[in-house]
Design a protein around this nucleic acid. Structure first.
Lengths: 144, 144
DNA sequence: CCGAAATTAAACTAATTTAGTCAACAATCG
DNA sequence: CGATTGTTGACTAAATTAGTTTAATTTCGG
């Protein structure tokens, strides 16, 4: 049940971009310095987030990265799915990337106890991460 | 946020042992056949569960495995921690295996947004898995 | 006591994922 | 032009995952 460094760094980078949102673009070294992220790894992450349409970038001198959506419109769940894949503990309970379980001895989907309990875990995780936005994240409030 | 095959197989194996509990011991091939688990991998898992004190075994002809605790006294959280490690998405929010985060830019523990949200995720996961026992699991009921 | 049946234990392996690193390239600004 | 900065893809080392193999030990039935 682990969050990868990639996702953790991605969230920290987006936190910085959220704090700068509307005011300025940030260069990779600014993000890297403030959040202690290895710079080349950070680039790779920012590129993925760019391809996913969350941020934009400008090359050359005076270049940098900017959020292109409102912080309140980006949830942590979205970000983690982009960087780490589905939130669900097992494929057969994922709602965004369902995969039928191979070799499960229970033919009827509803009868598998593992699936049942992992379904509730998935819902709990998604319930938190899909309602927590970058805006919440940056404002440092407690939730629930 | 993934559950390993090891934990999944471990849970399925314990499910079989729960169903047999008090009535008979099960041999590895019975568990393996019923739950479609590669037999040598299953052994490895059963050995870990034995060392953790959840099951006992008898060697030789007529040998096999038995639960040595009451199904209602074993939670899925315990089992997953034994086989996969801590439930927490990141070490610094684990209650059973806390690890200080290295290189976190926030010196004050309470101020880190990643830690805050992952703390609520950890509590949600543990809230489910630490209250769901093998007895619940085997009785196939829905929960909360 | 013998041999088959069963668990124990540890070492081994192949594939995948994680966490980066590196080098060549392209665009932009002054 | 040349320094700065992002782009892209290839590369790598270490860890993890999902097993497999081998050898040993214990127990039961005859």
């Amino acid at each position: 049940m682990k969050l990868s460094k990639k996702s953790e760094y991605g969230l920290r980078a987006l936190l910085e971009l959220t704090l700068a949102h509307g005011r300025m673009t940030l260069q990779r070294h600014e993000i890297s310095d403030r959040q202690h992220i290895p710079i080349e790894f950070l680039e790779q992450i920012l590129l993925t987030l760019k391809r996913a349409g969350l941020i934009s970038s400008r090359r050359g001198a005076k270049g940098g990265y900017t959020l292109i959506k409102q912080p309140k419109d980006i949830t942590l769940g979205q970000v983690i799915r982009i960087l780490d894949g589905p939130l669900a503990p097992i494929g057969c309970v994922s709602k965004t990337a369902y995969q039928k379980c191979r070799d499960c001895p229970y033919s009827d989907k509803a009868r598998c106890p593992v699936q049942q309990v992992m379904g509730t875990v998935r819902d709990a995780i998604a319930g938190i991460l899909d309602h927590y936005t970058l805006a919440d994240f940056a404002s440092d409030r407690h939730k629930g």
